[in-house]
Design a protein around this nucleic acid. Structure first.
Lengths: 403, 403
DNA sequence: TCCCATTTGTTCGAAGTCCGAACTTTATCC
DNA sequence: GGATAAAGTTCGGACTTCGAACAAATGGGA
């Protein structure tokens, strides 16, 4: 039940009917391909004639392609229909504090090119370099009909202005990425928070996501941010900053976070927290000969390597992180009760150790038994890039906004 | 952007167009009444002819009524259209641990009857008495075309089965209220959590809710539960238990909650928490002559009365409660960033004292400045009852679910 | 070899809906 | 009384789905 906003709606015309049914058809093909017109008739409940007309138009518009002919025990053979992956090209960009990854993708999230560059410290320099890279990439792969550029960022995008706001790990304040890139490339540019991008990726191209309409992605790196899909829609809040559960204080006497408060989830359970736990555990070697500086700079990836080798101190640091990660995830399970909660980040490399601890924490803390499936993401970069593709292409596959 | 679920969708027909536009028209009349056909043409962008046809059909179906004739500087006078509040009757029921309130309502949430009864401890006895009361109420107010019965409950309703699950303050385990009442009355019965009902009430009949699509209701009584409307839709999670932020642990060393964990928001910031704070502050009067039993049972309503009179101890207890209430609300503002966060419960009686403390806590703890308006609800019973009316009638006013 | 049952896919008129222009109705002002 | 203006109605055109009839394609059996 979706309320109609009397200030912002779209009335329906005859074309709306065709639009809705075309999108349904497109989704049915995506879900069941290869699939015949007769199958689509059965899946959709539309008349065979209607299915033929719609399929004909979608083929003419290059959304669908006729493929092989099927075999049946008797009767005329069906001609199978497929999505045409060449119909849309997308440039996907994944911005992370250290490196920025660019990809060229088809409609099916198969990347035909993948390259990366260091993320420039200076925002205007970054914009210039990114524009340059994108135009180069398009020139190098010209035989695609590009639908747009999707960009995943470790920050939040303001709803109205589509500008980057609140990107503490990048250190940038308000930044307009959309206008210069659109101007440079002539393509529409969509920006989205990295956690939201991951949530979108799973919603649109995740495995075992049949019928999943409520999904939460927890992006764990040097900060923690949350992306939410509720009722099949991204939740961005009134201004676009929804999802900052990382700055919920879960321990009033905990260490101080950069946001000024104490014991934020992020300061307890991010990669940076594990680095700190590891450093602290080596700080006071009884004789106090070793100084802080010896141990303070072991990066998170090294800690994970140590964990994989069975290093005790690293395991203890990881366990502390996992304990607090579980506490925050329990908050999300209690509060949002999604079908799926996906954890994204380097920590998934040691999920065999972390997963059970998180599951245990959720089990202990959950009063309601929300039946949430907690899963690790495969590759974080791939996940975010798939999200950027979904970001650009979802307008063709989602329900038209009638209200 | 709403994803189409390829397992559950509705194809569009020509009637879908009329359906969509009729609902838009109904919403426009609701928003702007009294309003002429010509005004509706301008608001909707539809052709004058189309507006006339739709208005004609809505009048024939008794949704709209023609009213007075307007005056214009020149030209033919417009005939104004109104919603017909008599079109739908609703029985609204608000179940609370102590008392259950019943109301008869029109489409405009004007209650033509309001009565209450004690809430029976035994669930089957309760169901029997409620059925009896409802049929009596319908018999006493026969001249309405009843659309259904809406019931607000301090618990969660399972999504598939529509049964009451998780109702700790009532002490009931799984209970099917829907089937017996539908059987008894012959009317469709809708059940919803009380916090969700409040959120719905504000969404559909709240003041100053123009363009608000993201709204959170925090119901504070002896427990705390949260109702969420995101993107204009109620968020119920995969099983229906979304919103149990009351059982998020905000203080790992805090007092133990009935859920088994320590320092849950609910154990720190509910009415019961204030009662406990008040009792504790009187516990050790140095000489230890006064026993626990003297002070332990001052009910929350009395504490509020004492606060209104300026009693210091009561104010201190209230302040502790407000402090923790603010912490939890800050969590919701950070995580969900709604346009409006509404607090429902007895505590709103002293909102002049509590409001600034909550606002301060949110201000201090909020990193993102989500611009959330934090407001107290007027009357909690009225709010929940309006929610039950919205619950029953929203199907006529909301967008048809095409996907 | 020929006919028939069966399934896929197409054709075409009917019904429903909105669009848009022309028309009717009902006012005020000069 | 005529000009102007705005509200509301009428009616043919365009678009879409529906539903029945039709054409196409295939295998089995006499």
């Amino acid at each position: 039940m979706h309320k109609i906003n009397p200030n912002k709606f779209h009335v329906a015309t005859n074309e709306t009917v065709r639009d809705i049914n075309s999108r349904i058809m497109l989704n049915l093909v995506r879900r069941h391909q290869p699939v015949s017109r007769a199958d689509l008739m059965r899946y959709s409940g539309l008349q065979r004639s209607t299915v033929s007309v719609i399929a004909g138009r979608l083929i003419a518009d290059r959304w669908l392609r006729e493929g092989a002919v099927g075999n049946l025990p008797r009767g005329r053979r069906p001609t199978f229909l497929h999505l045409n992956p060449e119909r849309c090209g997308v440039i996907g960009v994944d911005v992370q504090p250290a490196r920025t990854t660019l990809a060229v993708s088809n409609m099916d999230s198969q990347f035909s090119a993948l390259e990366s560059m260091p993320t420039a410290r200076d925002p205007s320099e970054f914009v210039a370099r990114l524009c340059h890279r994108i135009t180069d990439l398009i020139r190098a792969h010209p035989n695609k009909s590009y639908e747009g550029v999707g960009i995943s960022l470790p920050g939040r995008i303001e709803v109205g202005s589509e500008r980057l706001i609140f990107a503490p790990t990048l250190g940038w304040s308000e930044l307009d990425l959309k206008t210069p890139i659109e101007h440079e490339t002539g393509l529409p540019v969509k920006l989205e928070n990295a956690a939201n991008a991951c949530a979108l990726a799973e919603l649109w191209s995740g495995q075992q996501m049949d019928g999943v309409n409520n999904l939460v992605a927890v992006a764990v790196s040097d900060d923690i941010s949350v992306g939410m899909v509720m009722n099949g829609q991204l939740v961005r809040g009134s201004t676009g900053v929804a999802g900052e559960f990382g700055h919920v204080s879960l321990m009033p006497n905990g260490p101080q976070c950069r946001c000024g408060n104490n014991g934020c989830w992020e300061i307890l359970a991010s990669n940076a927290a594990a680095v700190r736990y590891y450093a602290e555990s080596g700080l006071v070697p009884k004789g106090a000969i070793g100084s802080k500086s010896d141990v303070a700079t072991v990066p998170f990836s090294d800690i994970l390597r140590l964990v994989e080798r069975g290093d005790l101190r690293a395991c203890q640091a990881l366990n502390r992180m996992a304990h607090h990660l579980g506490a925050g995830i329990a908050m999300l399970v209690s509060g949002l009760a999604p079908d799926v909660l996906m954890v994204v980040g380097e920590i998934t490399r040691v999920w065999d150790k972390v997963g059970p601890m998180v599951a245990g924490a959720v089990e202990r803390r959950s009063f309601t038994h929300a039946a949430t499936r907690i899963v690790p993401a495969g590759s974080e970069v791939q996940s975010r890039l798939r999200g950027t593709v979904a970001l650009v292409l979802q307008k063709h596959f989602s329900a038209p906004s009638i209200a």
